[in-house]
């Protein structure tokens, strides 16, 4: 069985894989980092989004073998080591951007990728960017609001509450 080595959340990670081992399986089963979720098998729901070399990818649609040598960031690596939430996580908390929490890791990883590309996105840009992340609970209202807030925009006037 071949071996793969990569850096996950700043730490070296090595494991035995099969050719068909998906990156998400390696993360969840081998590394036991279960924050990355699987919500579909057609690459649409986005619960599995992680960053590979700084880019958001669907870890259910990439083989572990292809992450050889890569720098992978999962939801577990986002908060500071002392547990302090990062800006996006904190905004999701402040603005109730999550309910059941299942899509949340992918949402946070996508939101972080968006803000890295576009530090002050408009509402429309955020909604467009989240095309690959499905949430069944929140109606997206508070997710979009949280991302706007995380980008430093004033969200106090968004719709009546």
């Amino acid at each position: 069985m071949p071996q793969v080595s990569m850096t996950v959340n700043g730490k070296p990670a090595t494991g035995q894989i099969e050719g068909r081992t998906l990156l998400v399986d390696f993360i969840r089963e081998t590394l036991n980092l279960t924050g990355t979720h699987v919500g579909c098998d057609t690459s649409q729901c986005g619960a599995c989004v992680v960053h590979v070399n700084g880019k958001a990818v669907k870890s259910c649609t990439m083989f572990a073998a292809e992450a050889e040598g890569a720098d992978v960031l999962t939801i577990e690596g986002v908060a500071a080591p002392d547990g302090t939430l990062d800006t996006v996580q904190q905004a999701f908390h402040e603005h109730h951007g999550l309910q059941c929490g299942f899509c949340t890791p992918g949402m946070v990883m996508s939101a972080k990728a968006l803000l890295a590309e576009n530090p002050t996105p408009t509402e429309a840009e955020i909604r467009d960017y989240l095309e690959g992340n499905i949430c069944r609970c929140t109606g997206y209202h508070n997710i979009v609001k949280a991302i706007m807030a995380a980008s430093g925009q004033d969200v106090s006037k968004i719709a009546a509450e």
Binding site: V49, A56, M62, S110, L114, Y129, E131
Partner: peptide
């Protein structure tokens, strides 16, 4: 095409 994560792969 697709969504941002798909476009990255």
């Amino acid at each position: 095409i697709g969504d941002p994560a798909v476009r990255n792969r």
